[in-house]
Design a protein around this nucleic acid. Sequence first.
DNA 1: ATATGATGCAACCAGGAGGTTGCATGACTG
DNA 2: CAGTCATGCAACCTCCTGGTTGCATCATAT
Lengths: 112, 112
Amino acid sequence: MSPRPASAALLRSAPIFAALGDPTRLHVVSRLSGGGPMSIAQLTEGVEVTRQAVTKHLEVLAEAGLVRDFRQGRERVWELETRRLEEARKALDLISHRWDEALERLRGLVEE
Amino acid sequence: MSPRPASAALLRSAPIFAALGDPTRLHVVSRLSGGGPMSIAQLTEGVEVTRQAVTKHLEVLAEAGLVRDFRQGRERVWELETRRLEEARKALDLISHRWDEALERLRGLVEE
DNA sequence: ATATGATGCAACCAGGAGGTTGCATGACTG
DNA sequence: CAGTCATGCAACCTCCTGGTTGCATCATAT
């Protein structure tokens, strides 16, 4: 087992990070996380952009599996999907863990 | 203290996520995490794109504070900067934590 | 000195991302 | 049924992103 190749699992979390990488989107996610499920109109308040822009962002987040929607009367309500958040968190853990191992190996080599 | 606004600290991690959101970039980060510090040429092996493309990606990662470089003879060696990784991980924790709280509050309201 | 390997720099390009506006639709409220 | 509020749909626009190619530089091994 020499230098491990980039695990496919890790690579698969790229879309999640990409989705979280936009300020407006992160803001929306944060709003959702703090206030529970919200309609598009609600989410648009407190953000500088148009309702349509928010809609697009929500669709990007949904595509990445970070949010989920359901209808409630004439409203479309969005809520967080924490499973993917966990995946991303684990990916970050994996990276730093492997980095520590790698440095440890290097230190070992130097000391020989 | 009603529905908390998106914390600035959280918003500040958007660039980190954005940097991690590209497949090639995540691949590079993964390579670094598994094999210790590497030169640009080394990182270019095992990736489908040009050396210059890799250089650009490294600069994006550096901009986000995720990697750091130092010269070693005629090589430019890059290494991971795990501090920012930690920040991102904490941001994800914060989000899911607040979401759980929010759902708890909602459940409380419904049961009244 | 010189050839070679590792980068740096700059110009250029296509496509996608993030936003907007205008108008159509659907579902409650009186 | 009429008015209104929450969305859906579509066409457009601008800029940034991810990539490329070609050439200049700089350090090193001979």
